[in-house]
């Protein structure tokens, strides 16, 4: 019985892993194809099924002609994503702690409404916000700048940080606060010394969501810049021409995923640390 359960468990993990990996494997093999390799039907194994070529990869790194500059956008993306995520995380965590521990009342508006207000910022389809954001940044001369993008991204990311953190703070027992208060901590000290260390998994999750949503945002990166401040997704779709070169798109997709795989490893690590901290209390 126990063995059977384990078998099922492994089978489930295996099946899901295969599903996760499949598109990447397909992209990998496609990235070595040429037009002939694509148009002769689905093929999988280089040399056996089709004649591989390094054309797509050479194109990305700039020796085949028609290359795109990946490094500049890469750095821009990192700067914008990290700063907006950090600011959102700090402001969002503070607000979330407030919303989790105190009672706010302004007329009919209470805690639940305030929390919902934050997350409701993400409901609006981005399409229509393009023009007002454009006008707003234009007014302050911030179009096509890193700073302008950071501002817009804060509005996109902070709601996620608040929403995730409220839930996690709610999970941290209130007794911890009370004990700290009795020990003479003021609310800020309580938050900093006692609650925050106990919410590490939450912080990691909120942080990673901010980074992922920021890194992958395509729409605002696209509409609020002209030629100077290009972010990575924008640089990658600049290969999406009317003739879609499957191979170079595959190669660039793989490149854009690579750094985030690193992030996934980091996240996993901190999740475990959080576990230890949480378990030790």
């Amino acid at each position: 019985m126990r063995n059977l359960l384990r078998l099922i468990k492994f089978a489930a993990i295996l099946i899901w892993s295969a599903f996760v990996v499949a598109p990447f494997l397909w992209a990998l093999t496609t990235s070595f194809k040429t037009a002939n390799g694509v148009t002769s039907g689905a093929t999988y194994i280089p040399f056996v099924d089709y004649q591989p070529s390094l054309g797509a990869w050479k194109g990305l790194f700039g020796s085949g002609g028609g290359s795109i500059d990946i490094m500049g956008p890469f750095v821009n993306s990192a700067v914008v994503t990290l700063s907006a995520s950090l600011i959102s995380l700090i402001l969002g965590t503070l607000a979330a702690y407030g919303l989790s521990r105190f009672t706010y009342k302004a007329g009919p508006v209470g805690n639940a409404d305030l929390t919902f207000f934050f997350i409701s910022q993400r409901i609006m389809p981005p399409v229509v916000l393009a023009i007002p954001f454009f006008l707003m940044l234009g007014l302050f001369g911030l179009l096509d700048t890193i700073f302008g993008l950071v501002i817009v991204y804060i509005a996109l990311l902070m709601p996620i940080a608040v929403w995730v953190m409220v839930d996690f703070f709610n999970q941290v027992p209130r007794e911890l606060d009370e004990t700290a208060m009795i020990d003479g901590c003021n609310p800020v000290e309580t938050f900093w010394r006692v609650i925050l260390p106990n919410s590490k998994p939450g912080l990691v999750v909120a942080g990673i969501f901010c980074v992922v949503f920021g890194w992958n945002d395509f729409f605002f990166a696209f509409t609020l810049t002209f030629t100077k401040t290009q972010l990575l997704p924008v640089a990658i779709v600049s290969l999406n021409s009317s003739v879609t070169p499957w191979w170079s798109l595959s190669a660039s997709a793989l490149i854009s995923v690579a750094p985030l795989i690193l992030v996934a490893f980091l996240v996993e690590r901190y999740l475990d640390k959080g576990n230890i901290a949480g378990g030790g209390k």
Binding site: F134, F222, T223, F226, L239
Partner: peptide, 21 residues
């Protein structure tokens, strides 16, 4: 400076700056 835009997004990328001065 050159920016490359897929066809489907080209019109709005050109039109929004024009219409907003």
């Amino acid at each position: 400076n050159v920016v490359h835009v897929p066809f489907g997004d080209l019109f709005q990328r050109i039109m929004i700056p024009f219409q907003t001065g």
